[in-house]
């Protein structure tokens, strides 16, 4: 056994040693010429190159598309129109009435997304927090339940959407159970309120495991003896929660809140599979609007979609800045 692992080691280390010897000379030369900063550039280059090709270049292209019009795909074929697309998205005759807007679908999608984000994030934070608090206790089968709640996070959003459509559709599992229990079946996905609620419930179900995990880690980082000290002082459980658990969980809650907000604004795949934005436009969210305007509709308008995605991007940038500010503040607090 030892001989095998030794020879395996040789198989790995000998080529590595050769490789190291080959790149040693140029790296050494580079370091002598440029110092530590130059070496940092060398090691950062691969990641920066990937980031540039897949993030920066598309971002710039997206902005360029947003200043053009037409149905052509290739940028050189398109007509430059300046900020017309933005104007088209944002112009309404009467801002209190969505129907008077030139792109009323955009406003519908934005309004739906806002409502979705408010309800979904509130539900998400509450459900994840309660789940984390329960899983943090010494209950039987704790490991099993942790796995159960995390499992949906591993599923592809399309699978999530399909599973729930199969449960909620007119002849789905839920109605089957209800009929067998002697109840009237409901058209879950064809009712505006039910469908909207379903998109919230399904996305919470699919992602809560991730947020629960963050909160659980935060809960477990709170020293046990703080609770024992509170216990010695006869602190009622509610006061322990509000005065000890919640403040000490604050940084984790802030991370969860902002991440959930960002993910909420971006919501698309599972809802697209589950309701397709319907009934009507009642579950049409921004990303789906962008997708349909840019790619899926017959009268596709990549410029308009690009402009809408830039606007959505601005919202996300603001949210991300808030998150960075929060985590920076947390670091500062930690250093004090």
């Amino acid at each position: 056994m030892a001989a095998i692992s030794k020879s395996l080691g040789t198989v790995v280390t000998v080529p590595l040693a050769w490789l190291a010897r080959i790149i040693d000379y140029p790296l050494r030369w580079w370091q002598i010429r440029t110092g530590q900063g130059g070496m940092a550039a060398v090691f950062l280059f691969p990641n920066l190159a990937i980031f540039g090709v897949f993030v920066i270049v598309p971002l710039v292209l997206n902005f360029l598309y947003s200043t053009t019009s037409g149905t052509d795909i290739f940028l050189p074929d398109r007509t430059f129109v300046g900020l017309d697309q933005y104007q088209r998205l944002l112009s309404c005759d009467d801002y209190t009435r969505r129907i008077t807007c030139r792109e009323d679908q955009f406003w519908t999608a934005a309004g739906n997304t806002l409502a979705f984000v408010i309800f979904q994030v509130a539900t998400m934070v509450a459900v994840s927090l309660i789940t984390a608090l329960i899983l943090n206790r010494n209950i039987a089968g704790r490991g099993f339940f942790r796995a159960v709640f995390f499992f949906p996070v591993l599923l592809s959003p399309v699978v999530v959407g399909l599973i729930w459509r199969w449960i909620l559709q007119r002849q789905g599992l839920l109605n089957l159970i209800m009929v067998n229990l002697g109840m009237e079946p409901e058209v879950w996905l064809n009712d505006r309120a039910y469908a909207f609620t379903a998109t919230i419930g399904v996305s919470v179900w699919a992602h809560m495991g991730f947020y629960t995990l963050i909160l659980l880690a935060g809960l477990q980082a709170i020293p046990k003896d703080l609770y024992e000290a509170a216990d010695m002082d006869g602190t009622p459980p509610a006061r322990v929660f509000w005065r000890i658990t919640l403040p000490l969980l604050g940084p984790n809650l802030a991370v969860v809140l902002v991440l959930a907000l960002i993910k909420g604004v971006q919501i698309f795949d599972e809802v697209y599979v589950l309701t397709g934005g319907g009934p009507g436009t009642s579950t049409l969210y921004l990303t789906q609007y962008i997708y349909e305007v840019g790619f899926a509709s017959i009268l596709r308008n990549p410029g308009l979609a690009a402009a809408a995605s830039i606007l959505m991007g601005l919202v996300l940038v603001v949210l991300t800045l808030i998150q960075l500010w929060l985590s920076g503040r947390k670091e500062k607090a930690g250093k004090r």
């Binding site: 020293p223 509170a230 216990d231």
Partner: peptide, 29 residues
């Protein structure tokens, strides 16, 4: 219960509430 025994404990780690001032730590109990 621990709280009703009239005892006070000093913990090895001190177990001070990190988010409270000294005064709040003293008054909390």
């Amino acid at each position: 219960n621990a709280a009703d025994r009239g005892l006070a404990m000093v913990f090895q780690s001190y177990a001070l509430y990190p988010h409270m001032t000294v005064r709040q730590n003293l008054s909390f109990g």
